[in-house]
Write a protein that binds this DNA or RNA. Sequence first.
RNA 1: GGAGAGAUGGGUGAGUGGCUGAAACCAACAGUUUGCUAAACUGUCAUACCUUUAACGGGUAUCGGGGGUUCGAAUCCCCCUCUCUCCGCCA
Length: 424
Amino acid sequence: MLQLNIIKECRQQVIERLSVKNFPDAELRIDRIIALDAKRRELQKAFDDTKAVSNQLAKQIGVMIKEGKTAEADKIKMQTAEYKLKEKEYSDELTDVEMQLNASLLEIPNLPHSSVPTGKSSEDNEVVSQWGEVPKLDSDALCHWDICEKYDIVDFALGNKITGAGFPVYKGKGAKLQRSLISFFLDRATANGFLEVQPPLMVNEQSALATGQLPDKDGQMYFVSEDKLFLIPTAEVPVTNIFRDEILNEKDFPVKRCAYSQCFRREAGSYGKDVRGLNRLHQFDKVEIVVVEHPDRSYEQLEQMKAHVSGLLESLELPYRILRLCGGDMSFTSALTFDFEVFSAAQGRWLEVSSVSNFETFQSNRMKLRFKNSEGKNSLAHTLNGSALALPRIVAALLENNQTKEGIRIPKALQPYTGFDILY
RNA sequence: GGAGAGAUGGGUGAGUGGCUGAAACCAACAGUUUGCUAAACUGUCAUACCUUUAACGGGUAUCGGGGGUUCGAAUCCCCCUCUCUCCGCCA
């Protein structure tokens, strides 16, 4: 959520920045917020002033009753009636305006960082860097879904029977490969100073709102109506919410956490080759890194997180490129996002495996995540997160890129975890 | 799921209708004293909003959340959430 004072003080810039994200009716909505805020302050003042008078009268009555002047007290009691009416009126109106203001603010996405390129879709993303050689495969090379079947390591049909499309069953060396990747990612994160946590896989509405999944992504999350809980679409939600309503000490920065979790996404509206095999699942595994950082250092931190993710991909010997997302392709909550894509040789396409973002104060404002600054005042911290990494497409790329006649070659870094160097 | 008890500031914990935004103690922070450490002493120590306060100013709200009674609620009533104890069930 954007900070109200920034909207008020930098109205024109806010509107301009929102246009980079192709946010519709920015001017209209921003002006509505400014007007609602003015109305809110007006009502607040009226309410406070009225309340101040009646508080004063109530005090007088107390004193009089104590002194035995009940007749005088009764007289003043009569007076309080009109103030009570006014208070009720003001507070009702105030509640109404506050709700409208809050709802309007929740609909405004984060402002993109100044380095974010303008653009409408993923085609306008900017390639920042690229690493590794794109492998040349034989003409009879298989796509990963065929490899999965050939070695019986991921069973899509079985998952289909048990649950439905997008819920595969990992078997034998396939299951072991999953477990190995998770351990590998967690160990690397821990070595890099991230504290491992195991968060809940379901969150309440407040948590989903705090990180920005609600109201923006309502309908993309699985919802347990019986208990009003959401299945997490990413560990970002529970892990960032560890710090909801917390006031940190400046010397605590950077606060670094990592977590493995399964992620659940309804993916309503996806179709075609995007959803084939492991490309897009309803349930998948991911190791997430989350950082809470001082506002002055959050962009340095973002670079470090990028370096961490790059290190993982290089250890796995997967060719990748880094994209700076354009305004139109960025998430609602992000100020700056770098996507990591791995080349999937048999499919001949780049697959997104990680997204590393700085949210600045967008999430911390929603969740009241603050720190005591050097002047002893509370101010909002910056939050960042990144996938490090999401498993399915990593597995897809590993299977496709490393296929040999003997089987699938396992990268050296992973062999201590898998216990085998060829998967067959 | 059934029965009972409870929820107060960073922590412990007092407070059953007005003088309580909240005692006391602990922790924390600043200072004094001091070869060093320790101890002692002094002071500071919630958050948010409003406000043309010059200013360490003024006002309002907040004692799990919401609603109600009352001139006045941490305190009384109702609903919800959560925690604890006992019973039941159970990976």
